[in-house]
Simulated assay, not measured.
Amino acid sequence: MTSRNPERPGVNIIPIHGKTPKIHDTAFIAPGCTIIGDVEIGAGSSIWYNCVLRADVFTIRIGERTNVQDGSVLHCDPPRPGDPDGCPLVIGDDVLIGHMAMVHGCTIHDRGFVGLGAIVMNKAVIGSDAMLAAGAMLTERKVMGERELWAGRPAVKLRDLPEPAIAGMRIGVAHYAENAKHHAKAVAAALG
């Protein structure tokens, strides 16, 4: 199944339960991605090759200039008895999510970072300018403060991040925003 939108060739956009993904015109969605249900993706964001964003039971919200790198899986959990708020997935602006990450029903504040292959579980929170290291697992309801580095399985705080690390993450955001423009042109030429 491919998108009915010719501007997004090779992307599976699937409405379910009366909800259709809302994707800003300036967002780059790479071929091979599947985006399902109540998903919103903000301006200048990029979802890279073979990601799955499945909002079939609740909501996924992604801010502006955020990137979700290749092979990542994003999901959420619905409200239930004893948990009327459920576990929406809320991702802010300028967030970096590394390749093959699993991000589920959590909150990632602006400029948060999720490393390669990391797992973020329900109701966990990653603060602004905070970094979850590659391969780490942030378990349910754990809260990372602003500018903190956490690592391990389960993840624990290692230290506060110095200014050069924060600057490096911001450079990464700018790189992905620019690189997404190049890929959008390349995909249009190859599949157009």
Rank of each mutant, 00 (worst) to 15 (best):
Phe28Glu: 01
Ile41Cys: 04
Pro9Lys: 10
Ile16Ala: 04
His24Pro: 00
Ile36Gln: 10
Cys51Ile: 11
Ile41Asp: 02
Thr20Trp: 06
Trp48Cys: 00
Thr20Gln: 12
Arg54Ala: 13
Ile29Pro: 03
Tyr49Leu: 09
Asp25Arg: 13
Asp38Glu: 15
His17Tyr: 04
Ser45Gln: 09
Gly10Ser: 02
Pro6Met: 09
Thr20Asp: 06
Pro9Glu: 07
Arg54Thr: 14
Pro9Ile: 03
Pro6Arg: 01
Pro21Cys: 03
Val57Phe: 08
Ser45His: 11
Phe58Trp: 13
Trp48Ser: 00
Glu7Ser: 14
Gly44Pro: 07
Lys19Val: 00
Ile23Tyr: 04
Glu40Gln: 15
Cys33Ser: 10
Asp38Val: 07
Pro9Gly: 09
Gly18Phe: 12
Pro6Gln: 04
Pro31Trp: 04
Gly44Lys: 09
Ser45Lys: 11
Pro9Met: 06
Tyr49Glu: 06
Asp38Ala: 13
Cys33Pro: 05
Thr20Lys: 09
Ala43Cys: 09
Ala27Asp: 00
Thr34Gln: 11
Ile29Lys: 11
Asn50Trp: 03
Ile36Arg: 11
Thr59Tyr: 09
Leu53Arg: 13
Ala55Met: 14
Asp25His: 12
Pro31Gln: 13
Thr26Val: 02
His17Arg: 08
Ala27Tyr: 02
Gly10Ala: 06
Arg8Cys: 02
Glu40His: 15
Val52Phe: 06
Val52Arg: 11
Ile29Thr: 07
Val52Asp: 02
Val39Ser: 08
Cys33Val: 09
Asn50Pro: 00
Phe58Ile: 00
Asn12Gln: 12
Ile16Asp: 05
Ile14His: 10
Val57Ala: 14
Phe28Val: 01
Pro9Cys: 06
Asp25Gln: 14
Glu40Pro: 04
Pro9Leu: 04
Thr20Ile: 07
Asp56Pro: 07
Thr59Asn: 07
Ile29Ala: 03
Thr59Met: 13
Thr34Asp: 08
Ala30Ile: 01
Asp38Asn: 14
Lys22Val: 13
Leu53Gly: 11
Gly42Phe: 12
Ile13Asp: 05
Glu7Gly: 02
Ala27Arg: 03
Gly42Val: 15
Ile35Gln: 11
Ser46Gln: 04
Pro31Ser: 05
Ala55Tyr: 08
Cys51Trp: 09
Thr26Ile: 03
Ala55His: 14
Phe58Asn: 14
Ile13Cys: 07
Phe28Lys: 03
Ile13Asn: 00
Pro21His: 03
Ala43Asn: 15
Asp56Glu: 10
Pro9His: 11
Gly37Lys: 14
Gly37Asn: 13
Trp48Leu: 04
Asn12Ser: 12
Ser46Asp: 01
Thr59Ile: 06
Ala43Val: 14
Arg8Ala: 02
Trp48Asp: 00
Ile35Asn: 10
Ile41Gln: 06
Asp38His: 15
Ala30Tyr: 03
Ile35Lys: 12
Leu53Ser: 08
Pro9Val: 06
Ser46Cys: 03
Ile36Val: 15
Pro15Asp: 05
Val11Thr: 01
Ile47Phe: 08
Asn50Cys: 10
Gly18Pro: 03
Ala43Met: 11
Asp56Gln: 07
Cys51Thr: 06
Val39Pro: 09
